Simulated assay, not measured.
Amino acid sequence: MQAVSRTALWVASMRAAEAARPDRLHDDPLAAAVVAAAESIPAAPPGAAEFMAVRTRFYDDFLLSSGATQVVVLAAGLDARAFRLSWPSGVRLFELDLPELLDFKERLVTDTGLTTTCSRVVVPVDLRTDWTTALTAAGFSASSPTAWIAEGLLQYLTEADRRRLLDTISALSVPGSRFAFDHMDTSADDRESVVDTLARIRDMGAEFVATVDDPALWLAAHGWAVTTDRVPALAVTYGRPLPDFMDPAAANATALCTATLPLAGQPLR
């Protein structure tokens, strides 16, 4: 499989490990099947699975609280939210990613017999090119409020591709839309544990840019109200503080952001 798919396998293996815990923050019926189907998956560094569990729960909570009936998962990878979350009635969820990765995922879904808990639409695209045409053709409505997520995506994009993606999301969003994403602060560049993790990701062949200019500032300048959470604080909120051996400064370097396009008359907060 291509390099980006190898990182998707890596994330799935960490989600499978989390699902096996009695105090798990999420369950994932597809993750174990992914691990069983993969020939080999690089080992995660210490603390990575705990970090990933918090990040996953953040996006789960965002989607279920968004109130949107139209959801777009950018770079969906082996994400199983269409199958594992208890969606309210009427939700249509679009999964966007590379064709070969989505084909692999579809085979696993068929083999495991999973059924969706929402209306799921698969859209094979490359997010570095024009993807709005395919999304619209698949039934996306630019006149309806949308809940967007870009989980672990912005770190893989160049500055130009990242700005193009944010431009596109803004152009397709109407007031009431929400957008959740994560990014790494530049402070992560000096943390040994982060450098080690980035080296492992790049060894998989992924074009990992890592730290980026703050996209929250860009979104705020374009009318979005943005709030930011940090992984260690969220871990405490979820009742699962990060292990003591983890570098708190490194964990704090990842920002988990929620952006809202306010309705008319609503102030920016």
Rank of each mutant, 00 (worst) to 15 (best):
2 Q>I: 15
5 S>P: 08
7 T>C: 07
8 A>P: 01
9 L>I: 08
13 S>Y: 02
15 R>H: 05
18 E>Q: 11
29 P>T: 12
31 A>S: 07
36 A>P: 03
40 S>A: 13
49 A>H: 06
50 E>C: 07
50 E>Y: 01
52 M>G: 09
52 M>S: 13
58 F>V: 01
62 F>D: 05
67 G>I: 03
68 A>N: 13
81 R>S: 03
82 A>I: 00
85 L>P: 10
87 W>M: 04
87 W>Y: 08
90 G>N: 09
91 V>L: 00
92 R>G: 06
92 R>E: 03
94 F>L: 12
98 L>K: 10
98 L>H: 09
100 E>R: 13
110 T>Y: 02
110 T>E: 15
112 T>C: 14
113 G>S: 09
114 L>W: 05
114 L>D: 11
115 T>K: 10
130 D>E: 15
133 T>E: 10
136 T>H: 15
141 S>Q: 14
142 A>D: 05
148 W>F: 08
150 A>P: 00
152 G>F: 07
152 G>Q: 08
155 Q>R: 11
160 A>H: 15
167 D>E: 13
170 S>K: 11
174 V>Q: 07
185 D>N: 13
191 R>C: 01
202 R>Q: 02
212 V>Q: 13
213 D>V: 10
219 L>P: 01
231 V>W: 08
236 V>M: 10
244 D>M: 14
247 D>K: 11
249 A>E: 04
253 A>E: 04
255 A>L: 13
255 A>T: 00
262 P>Q: 06
264 A>D: 08
266 Q>T: 11
268 L>A: 11
